Simulated assay, not measured.
Amino acid sequence: MTYEEWFLKQGELHANVMKKLEGNTKQEIIEYFRFENMVKNEPDFCPLYKDNKKCHDMEDLNCYLCACPHFRFDDNGFKKNPDGKVLYSVCSINSKKGSEYVGDNYIHQNCSDCIVPHKRKYIEKNFHRNWFEIMKDVRSK
C-alpha cells in the first residue's frame, strides 16, 4: 500500500467516525478518539487495534490525528541522494524525536518516537471536523 492509498483510506475512516459524532462537542469528539475507546468501539480504524497495540508508547494516546500534519510524503520520491537512495517522506518541523529509516534504496521518516500529534493539547489547538483540512499540506501534490 502506498502512502497516498493509506492516507486516503485513513481520511475515509476518520470521516465515518466523525459522522457518528456529528452532534458531539469538540471535547467529546477528542475524548472519543482516546486509544482505549477506539480499540473498543472502532476496531477497524487501525490494524494495530486487533492486537491492542499502540503506535506510540505513551499514556493517553489519542488517535484523532492518526497521521501527523507535519508528515510529508511523495510516493514518487522527493529526491535521490548521492548514494542513490530515494527520500519518500520527511518531517516538516524536523522533530527532535523523529529519525530516518534507511533501507537498501530508500529513506522514510520514522515518527515512532514522536508523540506531538497524539497529545490532547495539540489536538485541541489543531482541531477541525474535517480531517483533510488539518492534513491539507501532508501530500506533496
Results as ranks from 00 to 15, higher is better:
46 C>W: 02
131 W>Q: 06
100 E>V: 01
79 K>R: 14
44 D>K: 11
86 V>A: 03
79 K>I: 11
83 D>T: 06
37 N>V: 09
119 K>R: 15
27 Q>K: 14
27 Q>H: 09
43 P>Q: 02
120 R>W: 07
75 D>S: 03
28 E>M: 11
62 N>K: 03
119 K>I: 06
42 E>C: 15
129 R>D: 13
138 V>N: 03
28 E>K: 15
52 N>T: 10
141 K>G: 13
2 T>G: 08
40 K>P: 06
126 N>D: 08
33 F>A: 02
93 I>C: 03
101 Y>W: 09
131 W>R: 05
138 V>T: 11
97 K>L: 12
107 I>N: 00
93 I>V: 15
109 Q>C: 14
140 S>W: 12
136 K>G: 05
88 Y>A: 01
14 H>S: 15
90 V>W: 10
23 G>C: 04
88 Y>S: 01
73 F>R: 06
105 N>Y: 04
60 D>E: 13
118 H>T: 02
140 S>R: 05
36 E>F: 00
130 N>V: 11
3 Y>W: 14
96 K>R: 07
91 C>R: 01
104 D>Y: 07
5 E>T: 13
29 I>T: 12
106 Y>E: 09
7 F>K: 03
34 R>G: 08
39 V>N: 05
57 D>N: 15
31 E>L: 10
107 I>K: 01
122 Y>D: 02
31 E>Q: 15
61 L>E: 08
109 Q>P: 00
76 N>G: 13
104 D>G: 14
17 V>N: 05
20 K>V: 09
38 M>D: 00
33 F>E: 03
55 C>L: 08
103 G>R: 09
140 S>M: 07
132 F>S: 09
86 V>P: 00
25 T>Q: 10
33 F>D: 01
26 K>D: 11
36 E>W: 00
84 G>H: 06
17 V>M: 03
101 Y>L: 11
47 P>V: 10
93 I>N: 07
100 E>K: 08
117 P>S: 10
55 C>F: 09
90 V>I: 15
41 N>L: 11
19 K>M: 12
86 V>F: 05
35 F>N: 02
82 P>S: 12
47 P>M: 10
60 D>F: 06
121 K>F: 10
81 N>R: 15
43 P>H: 03
133 E>M: 14
95 S>N: 05
